[in-house]
Design a protein around this nucleic acid. Structure first.
Length: 813
DNA sequence: GAATGGCCCGGCTGC
DNA sequence: CGGGCCATTC
């Protein structure tokens, strides 16, 4: 080992700047804290190693430099190095940086990509061994649902009693653990149904020459773990070095994959931060990174604890947010960066007010020559983007929404994609079903049902059943003709797939199907918008072509389709002077100079599901908040609102418990004008707020709660009751810390907002107003009494009038 | 067989 | 609030 260090330190230029004495240190101790990513990268070329890399400590750098080191100093051939990244964008960035370090020739042959992209690529290469044909398609969520719906029909299962979503969810979980349909053993009658659906679903995927996301990994894993497979043998020896980024978010199957890839050499190098594990809901298991050392026969552990990214105040805020988390790998993030600006916590009245504040601040930043690409707004869920978009658009601030996949969810976009998928894989039944009568060509339900029956009888795909059906006597002359023409159309288009590029093919589809004509003849705005979307899609295909061509490869329809189905949210972030709007999940791995996080309220962030059966994982929400906060370099602004309209109802929620964790000394706090004007009021119609003599600023939950030092009992427990009139007026932007030593119900049961704000809100509940109840739904108030704990008589649809404590009711508009 | 309107239900995070 | 599904209607 010791001898190797010499060769390891002959690193690329940039790396040599790092102090190297730590390398020896790392060699001596099994567990080391190193704060130079480059040094960690150079340490221990052989054997398993885990780097716990705190936020902003240079996580991606470690991997990049390590690869550079392997290539340049250890002469490992690039095609024997596998690096798994979390997004395609991260893969691209890593390659770009590596090109600067070792030159483009070496980088070209590296295997860098996401789990899914790498497995897809391997499956294309080894499709035979995996039991697929070359043109297999990848089915996304929608496709999976469509397949499952057809399976339900076939099996005669009641989708009311057994929601397909749940069945699919269950199957998804099983597959993430590596369980096959055959292996799945039902333990009750629900699982009996799941089993039948599972088997049928898999059968249909196989028949369609299709795989779902889980299959991409599973099929490669099966090859890898099959001792008899020669391809498996190749794969097991293919890579000398395996490196994995964001290792805290791998699931069981992914772990088995990389372990198997590294099986021969044990050169498995993983980088992660258990504090940033935010994908438990999709199978990620933090224990994998935490147990890595034990599992991998005494892997070396290196910790990177110095944050190079964020200002001191932001790091301190982040630490305070993550500190209460349970079960952390011990580590202490620190920074030598100056404290910088205070973290700003803003109380707004509504989500619109919140958005307006953000927009105003962004405008100020822009006026001070801050690049808009350096600004991001994060929210917990996509549904929150709408208002922000509206306000930013109105204020003429350029923005881009990352993820949400709204574009690819448009009907016309999906139609064209479905055509392309059928053309590259005619067996794909869900795609054929989608377009068989789009645009209308007189092939209705009756005909398609006959077609499905024929396909079933012959055991073929729908497409392959067309000819026999046309030749049979089951159809009248009209449908026969229509179906034959459809078949000819597809065959004709498919013939050109080898000769014309993806973009030209897409254009031909639009033209020859009459799709474009139809939209052009339609004068409506809707049709015009659709044409624009299709134009955009063509543009995106064109971009893809250029990119592939520039790499000296041939662009294919299949390649494009794969690209779009496997693209992660962050992948489509453009390097443009626009504010980026995205979910916190999508923000993982990114960083911005200025970050706004909106919707920091209980039940929104931390999120709480409306579904009472759904468990809520506050620990993960906390880590999510930590991820969000640590994205910011210079300025962090956190916003919460008094009330928020979402999914058609208005919620009144307390400020997030995560705000309560912030140390007062790193925070400055302010209220928006509207909030100041409307404090103590719950209805703030246009024009009212300004006139109403507000009783004063509400208490600031975070400071009060942090002073009390908590343990927190329930979702609302950390926040004291707001009492109108209790707090003095504050000037805008003035920083203050409220102490509320006698917050009586701070640890009381979770109460709905009306109860919390009795003094001002009771008047809201007058006979005739509408309320919302968890179990009974929406109802109308008949009367309401005036006691300390008021009770309302409410008429809910389908029920006799009920007497219900106001604290169990929510206002409904 | 298509187009329209009403109604019910779900509502998060994503490759 | 919105999408998806069903029923009604032409």
């Amino acid at each position: 080992m010791a001898g190797e260090e010499d060769s390891e330190i002959s690193l690329p230029v940039e790396t040599l700047e790092a102090p190297l004495d730590h390398v020896a240190e790392a060699d001596a101790a099994p567990e080391t804290v190193l704060n130079e990513p480059q040094t960690a990268a150079a340490a221990h070329v052989e054997g398993p190693m885990v780097v716990f890399a705190g936020a902003g400590s240079g996580k991606t750098r470690v991997i990049t430099y390590r690869i550079a080191n392997l290539l340049a100093a250890c002469n490992v051939p690039p095609y024997e190095i596998l690096a798994v990244t979390f997004t395609n964008k991260a893969a691209g960035e890593m390659k770009r940086r590596l090109e600067l370090l070792v030159g483009p020739e070496l980088v070209r042959d590296l295997w860098v990509g996401t789990f899914h992209a790498i497995c897809a690529r391997l499956l294309r290469r080894y499709h035979d061994a995996a039991g697929l044909t070359r043109g297999f398609v990848i089915y996304d969520d929608d496709d999976q649902r469509a397949v499952m719906n057809r399976a339900y029909k076939e099996l005669g299962i009641d989708d009311k009693r057994f929601p397909p979503r749940q069945t699919l969810g269950r199957i998804h979980r099983e597959k993430q653990e590596g369980t096959t349909a055959e292996e799945f053993t039902p333990g009750n009658y629900v699982e009996d149904v799941v089993k039948r659906c599972f088997v049928e679903y898999e059968r249909r995927l196989a028949a369609a020459n299709a795989v779902d996301f889980d299959d991409l990994l599973l099929r490669v894993l099966r090859l890898l773990e099959d001792p008899k497979s020669t391809v498996g043998d190749d794969l097991r020896r293919k890579f000398q070095h395996v490196l994995v980024d964001e290792f805290q978010d791998v699931n069981n199957v992914q772990y088995r994959l990389v372990s198997a890839f590294a099986g021969a050499t044990k050169n498995l190098f993983v980088v992660g931060d258990d504090d940033q594990s935010i994908y438990r809901w999709r199978g990620a298991d933090v224990r994998i990174v935490r147990n890595f050392k034990r599992e991998q026969g005494g892997a070396r552990i290196v910790k990177l604890e110095q944050n190079y990214r964020s200002s001191g105040n932001i790091v301190n805020a982040a630490l305070a947010v993550i500190r209460p988390a349970k079960d952390r790998e011990p580590k202490e993030l620190f920074t030598e960066n100056p404290p910088g600006a205070l973290v700003l916590v803003v109380g707004a009245s509504t989500e619109r007010d919140e958005a307006a504040f953000v927009a105003e601040r962004i405008r100020e930043l822009a006026d001070h020559d801050v690049e808009l690409s350096e600004v991001a707004v994060f929210y917990r869920m996509h549904a929150q983007s709408r208002v922000l978009e509206e306000v930013l658009r109105a204020d003429r601030i350029a923005y881009q929404v990352i993820g949400g996949m709204r574009f690819f969810e448009r009907a016309e976009v999906k139609d064209l994609i479905a055509y392309l998928r059928v053309l590259s894989n005619p067996k794909s039944d869900v795609d054929l079903m989608r377009i068989i009568n789009v645009p209308s060509r007189k092939i209705g339900d009756t005909t398609t049902e006959k077609l499905a029956a024929m396909a079933n009888e012959h055991g073929t795909s729908l497409f392959d059943a067309i000819e026999p059906l046309v030749k049979s006597d089951r159809l009248g002359p009209q449908p026969k003709k229509a179906l034959a023409r459809f078949h000819a159309l597809l065959t004709d288009l498919a013939a050109s797939i080898e000769t014309v590029g993806p973009r030209d093919l897409a254009e031909r589809v639009l033209e020859e199907t009459g799709y474009q004509k139809l939209l052009e003849l339609d004068e409506s705005d809707e049709a015009e918008a659709r044409l624009l979307n299709l134009g955009e899609l063509l543009g995106s295909i064109g971009e893809f072509e250029e990119e592939v061509l520039s790499l000296g490869e041939v662009p294919t329809v299949g390649g494009y389709l794969e690209r779009i189905t496997l693209s992660a949210a962050a992948d489509d972030m453009k390097d443009a002077p626009r504010v980026a709007l995205m979910t916190v999940h999508a923000a993982k791995g990114l960083e911005f100079g200025h970050v706004f996080i909106v919707g920091l309220e209980e039940d929104t962030f931390p999120f709480r599901s409306m579904d009472p059966n759904r468990e809520n994982d506050v620990e993960e929400e906390r880590r999510l908040a930590y991820v969000a906060v640590t994205r910011a370099r210079h300025k962090l602004t956190l916003l919460h609102t008094e009330r928020r309209s979402i999914f058609g109802t208005t919620r009144y929620n307390q400020p997030s418990r995560f705000l309560a964790d912030l140390p007062p000394e790193v925070v400055s706090q302010q209220l928006t004008e509207s909030r100041k004007a409307g404090a103590g009021r719950f209805i703030d119609r246009e024009g009212w707020g300004a006139q109403s003599q507000a009783a004063g600023a509400p208490r600031l939950a975070w400071s009060a709660a942090s002073q009390m030092g908590t343990p927190r009992a329930g979702p609302h427990a950390s926040v004291p009751v707001q009492r109108a009139g209790a707090a003095p007026q504050r000037a805008a932007g003035e920083r203050f810390v409220e102490r509320d030593d006698d917050a009586p119900s701070a640890f009381g049961p979770s109460k709905k907002v009306l109860a919390r704000a009795l003094g001002s809100a009771r008047s809201l509940l007058s006979p005739g107003s509408y309320v919302e109840h968890k179990s009974f739904g929406r109802g109308r108030v008949l009367e309401v009494d005036d006691s300390a704990d008021p009770v309302a008589t409410v008429k809910f649809a389908g029920w006799q009038p009920k007497r219900i404590k106001v604290s169990f009711l929510d206002v409904s508009e």
